[in-house]
Amino acid sequence: MSADAMLKVEAVNKSFGGVKVVQDVSFSVARGGRTALIGPNGAGKTTMFNLISGVIGMDSGAITLDEARIDHLPARKRIGVGLSRSFQNIRLMPHLSVVENILLGQHSRIGGLGELFAPIGWISSAPARAEAMRRLSEAGVDVDPDAPVAGLPYGTRKRIEVVRALMSQPRLLILDEPAAGLNPRETADLSTFLKSATADGLTLLVVEHDMAFVHGLCDHTVVLNFGRLIYDGPTAGVRDDAAVREAYLGARAATVGGAGRAA
């Protein structure tokens, strides 16, 4: 599958102090596919996301997006090459309104100083705002766009964060536990939304604990345990893989093969 890989992670290592959090991990994410990155707590999934998005630097290895190395790029430039992310704990700007949070997602598309200093708050019919409103309605978020995000329900804020990530028009969208804390109805809605959002060829990589969600959404799954890659293959084969079963059953019984959450 490497020939059609959008994202390639090659022999990546990362240590915090003496703890090897990610050890010699290599995997790739197929173009236009939906890939899950799973693993027990502390497996290094979020660290992997932070390495890919440049929030932290890696010790060794290579990360390429469409055959171009991105690991030397600072975090703020990675969104410009088409990589956009969400965070495990919702990190919307609490003092900004819903639409302002979404508009922030367009920041990487600003062409020059003229756009940077063009007023966006005064013209409600501006194309930027129109796009934000359209994306919100596509995501099924029905709230007052000028309300501060701080008071909104959890599931709604979670959805707004995905919309914000989509506003940069990424090639690769990486979502850190998008379904965590959602009720079953919201999880199903999110799955439907992500399928429609990726229908036009957007590549998706998600970290997720909800195995039912992963099975419904992702065709390919990568499993990490204690910072090492233990599985890289079709999602359908995860439950029957000996190494994965051992990793999960050793940590917490009755998870792999059981319905619902794995950790």
């Binding site: 609490p94 003092h95 920041h107 756009e115 940077l116 966006i120």
Partner: peptide
């Protein structure tokens, strides 16, 4: 009122 201002407020928050 500009994107510059929006970015400033974003930096303030996170």
């Amino acid at each position: 009122a500009t994107r510059f201002g929006l970015a400033l407020r974003a930096i303030h928050d996170d």
